[in-house]
Amino acid sequence: MSPRRVRAESDAVGRQELPLRITVDGEPVDGIAGQTIAGVLLASGRLAWRRGRSGAPRGVFCGIGVCFDCLVTVGGERDVRACRRRAHDGDVVTTQNRQPEAGRATDPTERKHLGLPGEEDR
């Protein structure tokens, strides 16, 4: 089994669900208004969406914006913490990969290390 959202009908807090749809690497993913991008991804059955330097899969670890494991690109903006960014209907999310051999050394730290100009730095 995977992570999931509590069903609204049986949720003790008595809440509504306003549906929204984002795309992840081109694939449509449904969520509800108010969820973070990480929440939408988890509740859609995705446990991991980022790859580390070795290619190992990563998803949410700390859930509160400290570990940076859950980074995604949102509408062309790289390195957005998925656990802290609320999803909006129509968000175009692309996943990130830190593997150098993937030919996409786009991580700022990595680019610096490889002597490449930083596209965005922190």
Binding site: P3, R4, R5, V6, D11, V13, R15, G34, Q35, T36, A38, G39, L42, A43, L47, A48, P57, R58, G59, V60, F61, C62, G63, I64, C67, C83
Partner: peptide
């Protein structure tokens, strides 16, 4: 993936009703 901090599980459950 699937190993979370306890705080993550709490934030997801309390903050958006997602169980890990």
């Amino acid at each position: 993936p699937g190993v979370f901090t306890a705080g993550a599980a709490q934030a997801l459950a309390k903050g958006e009703r997602v169980v890990v």
